[in-house]
Design a protein around this nucleic acid. Sequence first.
DNA 1: GTAACTACTATACCAAAGTATACCGGTATA
DNA 2: TATACCGGTATACTTTGGTATAGTAGTTAC
Lengths: 121, 121
Amino acid sequence: MSPSIELNKAKQCAGSYVLAINDTMNVVSGKWKLPIIGALLFGKKRFKELERNIPKITPRMLSKELRDLEMNGIVTRTVYDSVPVTVEYELTRSGQSLTKVLDVMVEWGLEHRENTVGKAV
Amino acid sequence: MSPSIELNKAKQCAGSYVLAINDTMNVVSGKWKLPIIGALLFGKKRFKELERNIPKITPRMLSKELRDLEMNGIVTRTVYDSVPVTVEYELTRSGQSLTKVLDVMVEWGLEHRENTVGKAV
DNA sequence: GTAACTACTATACCAAAGTATACCGGTATA
DNA sequence: TATACCGGTATACTTTGGTATAGTAGTTAC
């Protein structure tokens, strides 16, 4: 409940620091995980909805990444016994709390662009 | 100078939001960028020092990633006209400010582990 | 003169990540 | 009976990322 205390602990133990960063990296790395998480931030969605919402993704990748995210506790998969069966994907609390990470990423990205105006290429 | 205002602006414009996240992802993704940045957080270092500090990295990858990070404005490369020539790599202000991003990554990683105790595998 | 250090580069290879295309069984609609 | 939607899977391929191994040019120490 007190993240800054946990953070200080972690900083004193390089091992868990690295472990925690790797956990986070596993969730955000790859071409499609962030687009999928981004789509689900607007609410739960079905497979085909996600496929339509995320340009250029193939069902193979969508399926694979959803399984990955489910195993890592980022999304839940719920099968409804309707006809035809519908499957809904939803972010867990952990998944939703990724916005914290994304927010500082946006913040850093913007600052970085400001810091380097005209210097690139 | 007021990051939260910038952040809100970005949230209203999906385009720059995505752009900013991609900028950040480019800097942290890959197997070696974070280890290199991590090593440089303790102060500027020379090529061989980095090579010794980062287990298992090959000079090819170190060279490539340093060039990458330099082009992206994360590290500076300074050649000293000594004998033999020494080359020092140092984090830019942007590079140093990445700690903000890494800190929330650690924080989220730790929280996520707490949220999912015993649930994985 | 030969061994070792500096900061790399070159070539070839290998493995992971991602793409393309097709297909599956089931249900509903026309 | 044919077509289309649902939630995927199968197979094969390409592209990207990373590894392994060797070598470069210059300098210093023995």
